[in-house]
C-alpha cells in the first residue's frame, strides 16, 4: 500500500469514527417502507369510514373539515378515544412504530452497533420535542373542531421533527422532513383534502425515502 492510499484510509477512518460517534446510523430504510405501508393501510380504512358515515348527510363536513366525526364540538377528549378514526390513527401509529423499530433493531444487530446509546437518545429527544409539542397543539385543534387543520398540522410538525433530528442520524432524513413540511403547507391551501395529503406524506414519501435509503446503504452488493 502506498503512502497516498494509506493517508486516504486514515481520513476515511476519521470521518467514519466521527459519524459513528455522533449519529445514530442504524436507522433502516426498511423501517421507512414499513411505516409507509402502515400509513397507507390506515388511510384506506379511514377513507372507508369517512365516506361511509359522511356522504350526503347533515354533516357534509368534507366542505368545512376533513372528517365526518360523529361527535360535536365541545365534547371531551374521552369521547374521541372511542371514535373509530382515532382508533385507526392509534393502531396505525403503534404498528408503524413497532415495525420500524424491528427493522432498525435487526440492522443494528447486523452492524454490531448497540441500539441504546447516547446517539440514539439524542436522536429520540430531538425528534420527540417538536412531535409532542405538535401533538398537544393538534389535540387542542380537535377540541375546537378544526378538523381540517389536523392533517396539515401532522405533516408540518412531523417534518420539523425530522429536520431537527437529522443532525443525529443519517442526514438524508432531512429531505424527508422538507417533503413533509412542504406537503403540509400545500395542504393548507386545500383544506378538506387532508386525507390524501396525509396518505401522500406518511405513506408514499416514507416508502420512497425508505427505498432510496435501503438502496443506498443496505442493499447486498
Amino acid at each position: 500500500m502506498d503512502a497516498q492510499t494509506q493517508h486516504l484510509d486514515t481520513l476515511k477512518d476519521i470521518k467514519k469514527m466521527m459519524e459513528r460517534s455522533s449519529r445514530f446510523i442504524s436507522l433502516s430504510g426498511l423501517s421507512g417502507i414499513a411505516a409507509g405501508c402502515c400509513a397507507l393501510v390506515g388511510a384506506w380504512f379511514a377513507y372507508g369510514i369517512i365516506h361511509g358515515s359522511g356522504g350526503k348527510d347533515a354533516y357534509n363536513s368534507l366542505m368545512v373539515s376533513d372528517v365526518a366525526l360523529p361527535i360535536h364540538v365541545g365534547t371531551t377528549l374521552k369521547d374521541y378515544m372511542g371514535n373509530a378514526l382515532f382508533r385507526i390513527a392509534f393502531f396505525t401509529f403503534i404498528s408503524a412504530f413497532v415495525l420500524a423499530f424491528i427493522f432498525t433493531y435487526i440492522r443494528s444487530k447486523k452492524n454490531h452497533t448497540p441500539i441504546w446509546t447516547s446517539t440514539s437518545k439524542r436522536l429520540l429527544i430531538n425528534v420527540c420535542v417538536p412531535l409532542i409539542a405538535g401533538g398537544f397543539y393538534l389535540l387542542k385543534l380537535v377540541e375546537n373542531g378544526a378538523y381540517g387543520l389536523i392533517a396539515p398540522g401532522c405533516l408540518i410538525f412531523y417534518g420539523l421533527a425530522l429536520i431537527n433530528g437529522s443532525k443525529y442520524t443519517l442526514g438524508e432524513i432531512k429531505y424527508l422532513g422538507y417533503g413533509q413540511v412542504l406537503l403540509g403547507v400545500i395542504n393548507l391551501l386545500f383544506i378538506g383534502q387532508g386525507l390524501y395529503f396525509w396518505a401522500l406524506g406518511f405513506g408514499v414519501l416514507h416508502i420512497v425515502y425508505g427505498a432510496i435509503m435501503w438502496w443506498k446503504y443496505e442493499k447486498v452488493r
Binding site: 477512518d13 476519521i14 469514527m17 460517534s21 455522533s22
Partner: peptide
C-alpha cells in the same frame, strides 16, 4: 488515538465504555 480524537471532536464528552465500543 485517531479514533479517540475523532469521537471527541464531534461530541462534547464521551465516556470510557462508549469509546471502547466505538473503537
Amino acid at each position: 488515538r485517531l479514533g479517540i480524537m475523532s469521537a471527541l471532536m464531534v461530541n462534547e464528552e464521551v465516556n470510557f465504555n462508549e469509546l471502547k465500543e466505538l473503537i
